[in-house]
Design a binder for these strands. Structure first.
Lengths: 187, 187
DNA sequence: CGCCGAGTTGAACTGAATCAAGAAACGTGG
DNA sequence: CCACGTTTCTTGATTCAGTTCAACTCGGCG
């Protein structure tokens, strides 16, 4: 299994000193199911990494939950707009399984970016990766059918079906629960 | 009118030396209407800034043109995935009006990012901005109706209607030309 | 046992796409 | 400056993927 350090190195290599400073800046929490990492209308102070477990990012739109992201083991995730702008947002970040979560505080990360050029580079590359992901997701939502999106999810992430309620997955795919149910019944 | 330097400063301030090195790294071209800045299946070597004129980013999907972005005066724009990965892509970047365009070569920018911490920071912040934009656009495509998207475009960018053919705008909004025409006829 | 939340199924509806003609605007050569 | 062809835009009829609303099934658990 991939470790946190391997995951960091994969994005961009750091000097030993930077790496040391960087790793010490992360906190680690063991949290139960349904634990809030960021509450509604709060500022997202942390960039997260989920070591194991599942978390999701969602919000309420006309009284309905919209799941914007689901993060499984060994993924970085954060409430993008709130974290960058350091302003409150509707987005809620919550675990949906007991989880081991790492987090680095925004201010701490900014300080480290100022002090260590290679951490700044690391962060720049991490964000580039998010931007690429975001573009792919947009393309998927705009041009793929519900069925295609579901199949892609299955292919890339088979375990998600066992671990995440159908309603969250549907919303994450940008469709209703009923539609997802109908798609699944075809198999 | 906003200058190139003001636009750079707005993203993140640079030291005088860095700014000098940075500004000298940009090339400037005066190009006619319909000039290719990046051709199909080519690698996007440049990050662009359009001083005046209009450019668009598009590609062919099942024989049809899909307009992914339209850049008007004083905007940065680039073929995101191709530029970051430095791999060929279907995306074509082309002017649709005579334009004054600035561009910085990928390798040059990477070198400057290595040499100047504050240029690295500048780039990081620029990308964060793109990521925020990308998130907003995704939200818009997923939840807003064609009408709402059109009205928002009108509000944010009234001049675009005079300067860009309807078919490009429709595709940029993620709808067909016919639908856009029907929306417009309601006024 | 009976309830309760998660998932399924059915029928009607809808926003937008598609396909197919027309109408307007545009520019190029006579 | 007009005629002609081409491109751009509009209008109409039909179709479709997915939503909505409502009822129903199933498995677990107090």
């Amino acid at each position: 299994m991939e470790t946190f350090i391997e995951r960091i190195d994969k994005i961009s290599l750091l000097s030993p000193e930077s790496k040391n400073a960087f790793l010490h800046a992360w906190e680690e929490w063991s949290v139960p199911k349904d634990h809030f990492l960021v509450r509604e209308n709060a500022v997202a102070h942390h960039l997260f990494y989920i070591k194991n477990g599942v978390a999701r990012i969602y919000y309420f739109k006309n009284g309905k939950e919209i799941t914007e992201w689901i993060a499984l083991d060994n993924q970085f995730f954060f409430s993008i707009i709130s974290f960058f702008k350091q302003t409150p947002s509707k987005l809620i970040v919550q675990t949906i399984e007991p989880a081991k979560v790492m987090g680095i505080h925004h201010d701490k990360l900014m300080t480290l970016c100022d002090q260590h050029h290679d951490i700044e580079r690391w962060f720049r590359k991490a964000i580039s990766g998010s931007l690429i992901l975001s573009q792919h997701r947009m393309d998927s939502i705009q041009f793929e059918t519900a069925q295609q999106r579901y199949e892609k999810l299955l292919a890339n992430n088979p375990s998600i079906i066992q671990r995440v309620p159908l309603s969250y997955i549907a919303s994450f795919l940008g469709i209703t629960q009923e539609t997802l149910s109908r798609i699944r019944s075809q198999y």
